[in-house]
Structure formats: C-alpha cells, structure tokens
Design a binder for these strands. Structure first.
Lengths: 189, 189
DNA sequence: GAAAAAGATTGCTCTAAAGCAAGGTTTGGT
DNA sequence: ACCAAACCTTGCTTTAGAGCAATCTTTTTC
C-alpha cells in the first residue's frame, strides 16, 4: 500500500487501516516511460489512475491538428478521462505521461464497485467530481475574455508546477496560445 | 409535487412515490421576474434551484466589466453556483433569471442532508456533477483554439435553446465574443 | 558522444476579432 | 400608446495573436 495513496484517503475520509488495506488491494502499480500513452483517442477508457510520481497529461487533438491540454495530474492526484469512463463512449482525449512515472491503476469495474460499496471511495469520487467542477468553473471564468499575458500570469500563480516542470509546447497548449506567442510573452513577465 | 421534478427523478433513479413525496417536501416553489437575481457576486450561495419554467443564467463579471456566461439552466434542470454551495465561500458568479420563471428551491442544508440520507438524491447529485464534468470537458475542447464562427455553429447545434431564446448580448457572453462580432457572424451562417 | 530530432526564439507579415461611433430597432414601464 | 432605455447592426480603425521562415538550443537515440 503506497503511503501517498494512504495519505490521500486519510486527508479526505475517516478510514481505518483495515479498509485501506482492502481497497488498496484493487490498485496495481505500473511504470510508464516519458511520452508513453495510457489511452488514445477512439479507445474506451477502462482505468482510473492515481499518480505516485511523474505526471499525466489529458489532451485533445482537433481537426486542424492543434493540441489542447485540459489537465495535468501530478503526483498525489487521480487522473483519467472520466467522460469516457462514465459514459463508456470512446475517448476524444489522450492520456500521456510527460515524465517517467509510476501510477496506480484501478479498473473501471473495480472503481465503480468500490464507489458503491466502500463509503470512503464514494466520498473520494464525489470529492474528485466536486474539485473538477470548481477547477473548471475557475478556468472558464479566468480564461475567457482575458488576454494571453494575463492567462500566463494566472498559470504562474495558480499552477506553478505546470509552468516549472513542463515544456513550452505543453504550456502553450494548456493556455490556448501558440508556442511562438508563449515565447514572446515570457519576455513581458 | 411538481411533475417535472418527478420525471427528473424517475428518469434517473428507481424511487417510489412515497420517497418522492418525502423528498419533494423539502422543495419550495418560488416565482421570479425577468432579470431578477437569485444570487449576487460576493454572497454565499445557500440554495440549489430546479427550474420548472423559464431559465437561470450563471455568469461572472471580470475586472474589465466584461460579462462571461458559463451556464444556462432551462426548465427541467438544476442550476446553482455549486462552487459556492460546496465550499461555503462567497460566489464569484451571479444567478439571474432571464425570463419570468418558476423554480423550486431547496436549502443547502436540506440538499446535503438528502444527499447523505436519501439514496435517490445521492445518485442525482453524482449525476449532476458527472454531467457538469462531461459538459465542461466538451466545452473546453470545442471552444479553445476554434474561431468564433465555428463556436457559433457549435452552439446552434449543441444548445439551440440558448441561440433561440436568449438575446445576442447573452449569447455573445456565452461564446466569448463581443456583440459586434456576433452580429457580423450571423451574416455568415 | 555524435548525429538526429524536437523544441525555443525572433523578425516579418497577415488576419480575426476588438473597439468606437452613429443610426436603426425592439422592449419595457407608466 | 408613448417615451426612454436597452439592444442590434454596420462602417471604419486598431490590435493581439496566428503563421511562416530562419536560426539557435536542448533533448533523445544509437
């Protein structure tokens, strides 16, 4: 049982060691290389991932071939394409590791079994959805109608990890600007 | 008990008449005029609303005074500032009726009581959060890096109610363009 | 550790959409 | 039904950021 997963549950629920050991038995540790894919567009997402080290990126490629990054899951966070996991439809987004990473993987079936039958996981799932709601509301309001320099400053303040650990190409696709523009913006910081 | 609320629960859960009657007793019908506010920026949100007729708009005003509309709840939908409801923090967004509307209101306390104690409401809440997740993922991917004409076409296809029932000013603030631009775009449809 | 590939920077040009102004239209209040 | 206020449209100007090309730098691979 990984101490990062343990803390994650203990910070958010009252759960005893026995239940923790039980539910953690459903997670399987996997190692992924930099730039490896855990899900590709068109595939149905069958797993939820909890990042132990490294990070996962959720992104979409539009018809013009333009990449759009929606979320980065760093260590200590869950990350998956919940839209595909929930609906069972093929995913429109990719899940890719951006660094050599270790993640815990749990199957969709097991995850939703625990959501129904293990109160702590029910709380965790609600928590994930609520956090996603709050984060996305913030992102919509802070991005729309705001110029790119302000968005960059927002990122620096709100998500310093994204700015410090990831390449400009990824940051640009997160901010919704071209790498050219991002490069220029950095001169104005 | 309102038949629209009844259908809402029956479509999403297995719930009997008795439990339905019980939980519906927590909702109180209120009438609001066009352009009336149910929540203003800075206030803590204390209610969840279910729209019977008319519609509610969730929007934010940024420091430049620019309005940004995030969500429209039409009849048969729940709508509130969940971020403020969940966190207990003052809301950064307004809730305003855009038409003469009838809504069912349930207090935050009662709502979360039912989420914990009435399985159907627990399912409904999860359902609301999951839908919000799916909708917002879609919106982020379909809006970012896409020009304004394509966004307008998307709206027409995905949310015809927004296009048909609301003023251009509101539609523009939903699409993230100025009313000038929207007016011109409509010539290119 | 060298070659290749991917990524970053910067000058220049181009374009989508913002911003302003003025005139026309619709809506709402009394 | 009338007046005021809000809203919509359209011509003109300005601007933020896209797109391309060339060069430089860092990272990956064998």
């Amino acid at each position: 049982m990984h101490h990062i997963l343990k803390s994650y549950f203990q910070e958010r629920t009252q759960i005893n060691e026995e239940r923790l050991a039980f539910l953690s038995s459903y997670f399987k540790e996997i190692k992924v290389n930099k730039h490896e894919f855990l899900l590709r567009e068109g595939e149905v997402c069958k797993f939820n991932y909890f990042v132990i080290s490294g990070c996962l990126r959720l992104y979409h490629v539009n018809k013009e071939g333009l990449e759009n990054t929606r979320y980065i899951a760093f260590e200590g966070k869950f990350g998956t394409s919940f839209t595909s996991l929930i609906t069972g439809q093929p995913s429109i987004e990719y899940i890719q590791s951006l660094e050599k990473s270790t993640v815990l993987s749990i199957s969709k079936k097991d995850f939703f079994f625990l959501v129904e039958n293990e109160p702590a996981v029910n709380i965790i799932y609600r928590n994930i959805l609520e956090s996603a709601y709050i984060t996305t509301q913030k992102r919509i309001y802070d991005f729309q109608g705001v110029d790119s320099l302000q968005r960059l400053k927002w990122l620096l303040e709100q998500q310093p990890n994204v700015f410090n650990r990831l390449s400009n190409k990824i940051i640009a696709s997160y901010l919704g600007v071209t790498p050219y523009t991002l490069s220029r913006l950095k001169n104005n910081l």
